[in-house]
Write a protein that binds this DNA or RNA. Structure first.
Lengths: 146, 146
DNA sequence: TTGAATTACTTGATATATCAAATATAATTA
DNA sequence: TAATTATATTTGATATATCAAGTAATTCAA
């Protein structure tokens, strides 16, 4: 089983891994909810954990540009997963609120997220996963300080 | 040093790693050549290794949709990195040829690619990199067969 | 307390991602 | 060979990515 890797580095493999994982996620998600993307799910999960998060913080957490977040949220509002309210404490910020449909969707998709992770990590031992995480964090830190 | 990870899985870390790596790459590339992207560089590298590659094969290698490849190549032709010629053996396919400017760019950027990889993988031992690659390929294979 | 700087977000422009449909050529089959 | 099927690429529509510039609210400093 040959792995074609045009750059010959593990960095290409990292890219490949995340692309394949995203494909699986999207496929499984769409079996249950047809009009939502992986990233939009991530937005819901994050908001569900921390309802007071700002768009800028959200952007950092999902590795996206602020402008992208603005537009992703616009679409999620349009599709009635979120509503935007005014943050009275700081009117620059917008308060993002998960709608009932959003909540229902989280409920529907939570088992899917678990399945996705389990699928991807099947056969990896806990210590292998920890090691993987450690090595990746080393790469992240190398890149950040570069 | 806390790692915020909203999903609590290594899959998020994979995403983070590749995003940070791409940022470094883009930054270093743009110091030398201002109007080219990481992916366009990858196209040049791949074509330089194998000039007979089709767009579909290219799409697979750089993990993109065929339509994206069409448009990326259009732009690269417009910027005079590539030229499109007719493949007389199969007129459906297009023959992609690296221009003189493209060749010069490859020469300029080759040391940058090496630097990028070295930067990202700094401090990782060979066997760690191999292990990383192995674990990632396990994930890839899990996702592909899912 | 006012003016300057900062912050949060939006908007515009362009590139890219993705899917579906369209086009053109090639290969296969009845 | 004519009709069908398959392949390679393109195009259209919409979403997202990215940068720069713009807007509005907040904070800071003289």
């Amino acid at each position: 089983m040959k792995h074609k890797n045009p750059t010959g580095t593990v960095l290409y493999t990292i890219e490949q891994a995340i692309k394949e994982y995203r494909k699986v996620c999207q496929k499984n998600i769409q079996k249950i909810v047809s009009d939502i993307t992986v990233d939009q799910c991530l937005v819901l999960i994050i908001l569900n954990e921390n309802s007071k998060i700002s768009q800028i913080e959200m952007a950092k957490l999902i590795f996206k540009d602020n402008a992208s977040v603005t537009r992703i949220i616009e679409l999620m509002v349009k599709k009635d997963y979120l509503s935007r309210e005014i943050n009275e404490l700081d009117k620059r910020k917008s308060k993002l609120v998960i709608t009932e449909k959003g909540q229902k969707t989280i409920g529907l998709l939570t088992p899917i997220f678990k399945l996705n992770r389990k699928t991807a990590l099947d056969g990896l031992a806990i210590d292998e996963i920890e090691l993987l995480d450690k090595l990746l964090h080393k790469i992240i830190s190398n890149c950040k300080t570069a």
